[in-house]
Simulated assay, not measured.
Amino acid sequence: MNSVERMFVPAQQVEDRLSNAGTWETGTTIWASSEAQILTCARVVDETHDVKSFEFRVGDGTPVRFEPGQFMTVSASVQGQTVQRCYTISSPPTRPYLLSITVKRVPGGTMSNWLHDNMKPGSQLRAFGPSGSFTPTAAPSAQKSLYLSAGSGVTPLMSMTRASLDLGLDRDIVFVHSARTPADIVFRKELERLVALSPRLRTFFLCEGIGNENDWPAPTGRLTLQLLSQWVPDYAEREVFTCGPAGYMNAVQTVLREGGHDPAHYHQESFNFAANATADAAPAATAAPKCDAFQSQETFTVKLSRSSKTFTMSATETVLAAAKKAGVAIPSSCSQGICGTCKTKVLEGEVDMKHNGGIREREIQKGMRLLCCSRPTSDLVLEL
């Protein structure tokens, strides 16, 4: 296994990464999303009655680099079966010695319940490196931002907010978070504290009901154009970052479209939270998607450069599905070209890849491919 150099990045470099279009990778090596490391739990924090934050140090305690808003894939053996799930890193990259994920207990959810019931200080967890492009670097020149989140969707936006405050960037950020009740607002006290530290950060909480908080001072219900216009009159001028359940994000898009917000300045997390909640009840599917009738029925040989293993596969299969069928263990999670966990370098040969945002153009140029959404068009040699 190749070693990975995890180096501390000075604050100026972090600020440059958040403010400009430069890359973290320049002159250094990052923890690759395809490489596994062992995390050791340092602390467990009760955020709400059904949400916990798990703070980890990595390997020998060296710092980790990532972009605020990125996620990582964690892996655990649950009842004798390997389960892998993607969780956003809720801590900011400005605190590189601890990585935290914030997890809501999902009824019937395999991984979320296992974490809540078993993870404690000293416990270990296998994880794959940070990935994802839902970060502030998607809009490096934005002067004003609007963060819209619901439920667990608060986590990537919390990482972005913490990073901005840690660096003293004094950014103009409006953070609107929706929850079922006031008791379900994740990071409520911390967000109130951060507002006191930064006059240009404003927060608004919107709950469907008041629960047991009879003196709740804010409106109840769901986000509307009228309410958004009241809270954020200049929303049309802001770069918008949205994360939450699919239904919430669809509703937000409708509100913004009705209000004349330019879609070119809208960004949302790719994950479908409702689908992930269902997926948490069972391991991710590994079967190949149905193929178009016109696809070739040719077979190709796939060789793994490190292990020297070889298997044959049909052109109608994804490389990931064929590898697992051949008994080759390859880290994966979403199986939809989103999470980036199965990112692998193709040393020889060509594939037809149709991804959903889990890989960047510069990674593609370096020969990386997502095996879950790649079908061979020739014999292959993979860096595995």
Score class of each variant (00 low, 15 high):
Thr135Gly: 05
Asp172Cys: 07
Gly80Arg: 00
Gly80Glu: 01
Trp114His: 07
Ala142Phe: 14
Val106Gly: 12
Glu213Ile: 11
Asp166Lys: 00
Glu190Gly: 03
Pro140Gln: 02
Gly80Phe: 12
Gly168Ile: 11
Tyr97Glu: 14
Ser77Arg: 12
Val78Ile: 05
Gly129Ile: 10
Met160Trp: 05
Gly132Arg: 14
Thr181Arg: 03
Arg95Lys: 13
Phe128Lys: 13
Met119Phe: 15
Ser178Tyr: 02
Gln124Glu: 09
Arg200Val: 13
Ser100Ala: 06
His177Leu: 03
Phe204Gly: 02
Asp170Gln: 05
Leu125Met: 02
Thr181Ser: 01
Gly151Met: 01
Lys189Thr: 06
Phe71Arg: 11
Phe187Trp: 05
Ala142Leu: 09
Ile173Asn: 09
Ser145Gln: 14
Pro96Trp: 08
Thr82His: 08
Met119Gln: 09
Gln143His: 15
Gly132Cys: 12
Arg188Asp: 09
Phe205Arg: 08
Asp117Arg: 13
Lys144Val: 07
Gln81Asp: 15
Arg180Tyr: 14
Phe187Leu: 09
Ser198Val: 02
Thr110Cys: 14
Ser131Leu: 04
Leu197Asn: 08
Phe187Pro: 13
Lys104Leu: 12
Asp172Ala: 12
Leu99Cys: 09
Gln81Asn: 13
Ser145Pro: 14
Val74Ile: 12
Ile173Cys: 09
Cys207Gln: 10
Asp170Gly: 01
